[in-house]
């Protein structure tokens, strides 16, 4: 057990190897435990997500990385029998405080899922939906601007600008995923969570999404769960390795993939356990 100082008079007990702290944290999570009924899925995990940082969560299936990701926007609230303990703070706000309304919280923390899930609506309406319900545009021109900017930032504008009223579901898989990213960033989030965003895409579409993640990282904090270690290596600045619900090691991506400190991390990233 390592004890780290993380503020003037607070100490943190963690078994995690490496630096769990970020210089300029956007999210701080401390001693997070997650239970599905009696089964503990996350065990005493503490980790910061830095401002405008891209961090990857990796680990074998069932290690808890997606469960931990979903803690950040309280997606676990929707799962029956799921209980989250510990402390997760976005800027200065405890996101699990009873007074917190999850609707604006999820506008601040956007999410992109494994399988592209556009609404059965037009490309335009897919992106415009969020700004409309959150009241981010007061005129049609403002809404048009948000849609255009979001599609441009998602790298999709040039491919769809002439068919904005076509159904979003008619796009290719990679385009649909970029549409979902455009939809997520249309509500001006501060953080984007991505749960295996490329696992259903071909290598070209994957490369486009990875380039997009790189570009988005200049303005947003991004937490990405991925099964592809090469993807984690390519897109993220820090990497966190989970195993059996515990955060085993976290460090700079270039360090994790060249000289990991923990034997379990080494075994996983070099394809010895899975």
């Amino acid at each position: 057990m390592v004890i780290m100082n993380y503020s003037n008079n607070m100490k943190l007990e963690t078994k995690t190897i490496g630096n769990i702290f970020a210089d300029n944290p956007k999210i701080t999570s401390r001693n997070v435990n997650v239970f599905y009924h009696d089964k503990q899925a996350i065990n005493n995990v503490s980790l910061d997500v830095g401002s405008k940082e891209i961090i990857s969560l990796i680990g074998p299936s069932g290690c808890g990385k997606s469960t931990f990701l979903r803690c950040f926007n309280r997606m676990n609230d929707t799962i029956d029998g799921c209980k989250v303990e510990g402390n997760i703070v976005l800027d200065d706000q405890d996101i699990y405080h009873p007074s917190v309304d999850v609707v604006p919280l999820r506008a601040k923390i956007g999410m992109v899922f494994q399988k592209p899930n556009p609404f059965p609506k037009s490309i335009y309406d897919n992106v415009a939906y969020g700004p409309k319900i959150h009241g981010l545009a007061s005129t049609k021109d403002e809404l048009d601007s948000i849609v255009e900017l979001s599609l441009k930032n998602a790298g999709l504008w040039n491919e769809v600008k002439d068919r904005l009223q076509s159904p979003g579901t008619g796009l290719s898989g990679g385009q649909q995923q970029r549409l979902c990213i455009a939809r997520a960033i249309a509500v001006s989030p501060e953080i984007i969570l991505m749960d295996e965003p490329c696992s259903a895409l071909d290598p070209i579409a994957t490369a486009k999404i990875e380039e997009l993640i790189h570009q988005l990282g200049k303005n947003y904090s991004i937490v990405i769960v991925t099964h592809s270690m090469q993807q984690a290596a390519r897109v993220s600045q820090r990497t966190a390795y989970f195993h059996l619900g515990e955060l085993i090691e976290v460090g700079l991506t270039k360090q994790i993939f060249t000289t990991p400190q923990d034997k379990q991390t080494e075994a996983y990233i070099s394809g010895r356990i899975g």
């Binding site: 270690m229 090469q230 290596a233 993939f257 060249t258 000289t259 990991p260 080494e266 990233i269 070099s270 394809g271």
Partner: peptide, 9 residues
């Protein structure tokens, strides 16, 4: 094989 860590070294 895209070796990592000790394999890469």
């Amino acid at each position: 094989r895209a070796p990592q860590a000790e394999d890469l070294r």
